[in-house]
């Protein structure tokens, strides 16, 4: 899916991914976690990844949902970034900054997160906490 920078397109991608989780019977907490991570990843891609690029540039989203896990790759067309250069928003000198919490939330709610292509692709995986309960 290639959403443009419009709320309706972001909502469409989120609905498609969450619909897949629902079909596999993922619990509410899982859907909350995946939605939050996807929302933050898409907003980061458009706001930070595409800073200075034409607004019509699209973000590429690839997702795979199985009964045990969810993998989502979000690729923007920007030059990338170094995740280690993102300031920790919980340290005292940054705690009042209004931005910088998206990546932290993604890492907290997903099971694993890594960056590729100099940071322009974010790959995140969510493992179902109790896969045996899936029916």
């Amino acid at each position: 899916m290639q959403p443009a920078n419009r709320r309706a397109d972001i909502d469409r991608v989120e609905s498609a991914v969450l619909g897949a989780l629902e079909r596999f019977g993922y619990p509410d907490a899982s859907r909350f976690a995946v939605r939050l991570a996807l929302e933050e990843a898409l907003v980061n891609a458009f706001m930070h990844g595409h800073r200075g690029l034409p607004p019509e540039e699209t973000v590429h989203v690839l997702y795979r949902v199985s009964p045990e896990q969810v993998t989502i790759a979000v690729t923007d067309r920007g030059p990338g970034f170094k995740p280690e250069h993102v300031p920790d928003p919980t340290v005292e000198e940054h705690v009042e900054l209004p931005s910088g919490r998206g990546l932290m939330l993604i890492k907290a709610f997903m099971t694993s997160v890594h960056h590729e292509n100099n940071g322009s692709r974010l790959v995140m995986t969510y493992k179902r906490p109790d896969a045996k309960a899936a029916t």
Binding site: F32, R35, L36, E39, E40, V43, E96, L97, P98, S99, G100, R101, G102, M104, L105
Partner: peptide
């Protein structure tokens, strides 16, 4: 039901 980090940013600004 849902709140993004951008909303947290707005709350931090209001707090200040």
């Amino acid at each position: 039901d849902h709140l993004s980090s951008a909303a947290l940013g707005a709350l931090i600004t209001v707090h200040a």
